[in-house]
Nucleic acid binder design. Structure first.
Length: 586
RNA sequence: GCGCUUGUAGCUCAGCUGGAUAGAGCAUCGGCCUUCUAAGCCGAGGGUCGCAGGUUCGAGUCCUGCCAAGCGCGCCA
């Protein structure tokens, strides 16, 4: 309907321009908006006011000119000039009913569209280092990324979901060293654990599994290992130097093959855990991309060659630098260190080069908000590689702060005392976790109240929406008991009986769903969908309390049940996009 | 110090990218279950949209300056 009005307006404007009653350079999009207040009709345009300035005409005069020239449309009941120059449209009620057969016909696919026209988008999200289990901070990125991907797919984009596995680099080496020490402990070796190592209990589990798999082939004397290491922080040394030396010691003691065995034991175990965890959280990927493969296939070297050829690399202080300041970054960045090692950023340049080469129309990276300073250098890299940096969209997700009622839940990664995503899921359930994570604007700090998420009371928005769905299902189950029947065809024929304000409100809300999905998807803003579902549920609950559905009058009963059946479908569709269940009973 | 983000009801947050009288939930107070699930509904109170300017027919929304909070500013990842 919105589009229909828009085309009416465009037709009118074109005519007026052709007749030289209006200048030709006037905007022709985003003309129509929904009215908040029903007194103002169903739709409105502020066109006359926006034209007042460029034309130098009185907005009311322009509005009248437009109204006079507006073509007749059987679905437009009335057009008013109001306020300082708004043009209000009153839609024929018949037009509002048409959404019901649309919903029932499209079923699970209602709300989907072809807006994306099959354009390819890659959404990369979570991508947490496989050095430990996912924690609640990752959970928000997981829920957000998954829903954004669902939304984009629903409006006709071809979406690929990818996890970037940081299976190379210093942190992974530290994990390997940590596993090694725990492994040695199982033989009773007197190990002194580094203060910068991974202390989580899961490391011991990996070590025990490793011992079962390889026996004592990786065993060395703990005393011999620690003998020549620089002192750790508690001993007045530098914890970074200490742990780096430990990693080197592990590599030299074990040799390349054995070190790889150790390294992969940690990597594979944790990655497997992450996969399972995400899967249980309803998050599924099309691809798991290995950072290590970037080195092995020479992609990193190739991307550096590209930058070199484009004249963006230079040597200084023994390191190789990328001149990102020339493309808007704050300072130039090292890509190859003095010791010859590639930086993480070098891998990331290669990673983005490959993304671009895969031909995506758009690349979306979902990052923790603490990485925002990283955006300019990645954009600079894309630009330097000769691509359009507008193809990259970085979506930032703020961490959630956990509360248990009034009390903040303390978290510390170092000591391993963080709340894992798995624990959260076990405590509040997948549905509540998913719903709560995307309820707030993603780049906004949020408080996640565990007590609220678990409470089975009216305070809990998840249950509120699910309950609306279950209620409709329950009404349908009541038919038999009451000796009544439901005739869907008659319902569709008798929709004009739905004249109560509660019914009109529901119809308007249902007709908004399609554009709401588009808006949520294009703005990468799932919270709009959550708020919509709360609104829809609220209207359904209010309707339920105000009117009886299972009335003796066949025509009215069938019409009302057709309406609530459509509402149920829309709630179910919305919840499925969030990957929250739509229970039939509660 | 510089950069990014945020500041809306007692609390948690929306506010459809500049529109008409700023909304919701919770909390507080008052009502509704012999009738389709009370995990629900109806009503009341509650606001200098951080502060001060500016842009225009119109600003919570845009621009500037302050104030406050968070994050970032490695040859870490």
């Amino acid at each position: 309907m919105k589009k229909r009005l828009e085309s009416l307006l465009i037709e009118t404007l074109s005519k007026l321009v052709a007749e030289a009653k209006l200048p030709s350079d006037i905007p022709m999009k985003g003309l129509i908006e929904r009215c908040r207040d029903p007194q103002h009709g169903d739709f409105a345009t502020n066109l006359a006011m926006t034209l007042a300035k460029p034309t130098g005409m009185n907005p009311k005069v322009i509005a009248e000119l437009i109204i006079e020239n507006l073509p007749k449309d059987p679905l437009v009941r009335d057009v008013h000039l109001a306020g300082p120059g708004f043009i209000n449209f009153f839609i024929d009620p018949k037009a509002q009913f048409s959404v019901i057969p649309d919903i029932l016909k499209a079923g699970d696919r209602f709300g989907h569209s072809q807006r994306g026209q099959g354009q390819r988008i890659q959404v990369e999200f979570v991508s947490a280092n496989p050095t430990g289990p996912l924690h609640v901070g990752h959970g928000r990125g997981a829920a957000y990324g998954a829903v954004v991907a669902n939304l984009l797919a629903a409006i006709g984009f071809e979406v690929e979901r990818e996890y970037y596995v940081n299976d190379a680099g210093r942190q992974m080496d530290i994990l390997a060293a940590s596993v090694w020490l725990r492994y040695l402990e199982t033989f009773g070796e007197p190990v002194v654990f580094p203060s910068n190592g991974y202390r989580g209990g899961y490391v011991k589990g990996i070590a025990e599994a490793l011992r079962k798999a390889v026996g004592d082939t990786l065993r060395h004397s703990a005393e011999a290992i620690s003998k020549d290491l620089p002192p750790d922080e508690p001993q007045g040394g530098d914890k970074e130097l200490h742990v780096d030396a430990l990693v080197l010691m592990a590599k030299s003691c074990l040799g390349e093959d054995h070190y790889r065995t150790l390294f992969d034991a940690g990597l594979n175990s944790i990655l497997e855990d992450i996969r399972e965890d995400l899967s249980a959280f309803g998050v599924h990927y099309d691809a798991w991309f290995s950072e290590r493969s970037l080195m092995e296939t020479g992609a990193v070297q190739r991307s550096l060659d590209r930058l070199q050829a484009a004249g963006f690399l230079y040597q200084e202080g023994g390191a190789t630098w990328f001149a990102s300041t020339r493309l808007g970054d704050e300072k130039d960045r090292v890509v190859v260190r003095e010791n010859g090692q590639m930086t993480y950023f070098a891998s990331d340049i290669a990673y983005h080069l490959l993304k671009l080469e895969k031909g995506f129309d758009q690349i979306i990276d979902v990052w923790g908000a603490d990485h925002h300073g990283y955006i300019p250098r990645v954009r600079a890299a894309i630009e330097a590689l000769g691509s359009d940096q507008k193809k990259l969209e970085v979506l930032l997700v703020q961490f959630a702060v956990l509360y248990r009622g009034e009390e903040k839940v303390q978290m510390s990664t170092r000591s391993g005392e963080f709340v894992t995503l798995r624990e959260l899921r076990e405590e509040v359930g997948k549905d509540a976790a998913r719903f709560f994570y995307v309820m707030r604007k993603s780049d906004q700090h949020m408080d996640f109240d565990l007590e609220l998420a678990t409470s089975k009371t009216n305070e809990n928005p998840v249950y509120y929406v699910q309950y609306a769905h279950a209620r409709v299902c329950s009404v349908f189950r009541q038919l038999d008991e009451k000796g009544l029947t439901f005739d869907g065809q008659q319902g569709l024929n008798e929709l004009s009986l739905l004249t109560e304000p509660h019914e009109s409100a529901l119809l308007v809300t249902l007709s908004r769903f399609q554009e709401l999905i588009e808006q949520s998807a294009l703005q990468h803003a799932p919270h709009h969908l959550v708020h919509y579902l709360k609104d829809l549920a609220s209207e359904l609950h209010a309707y339920y309390n105000a009117h009886q559905f299972l009335v003796p009058d066949d025509a009215l009963r069938n019409a009302r049940m057709t309406l609530i059946s459509a509402a149920r479908q829309v709630i179910a569709n919305g919840l499925r996009l969030l990957d929250v269940s739509a229970p039939e009973t509660m």
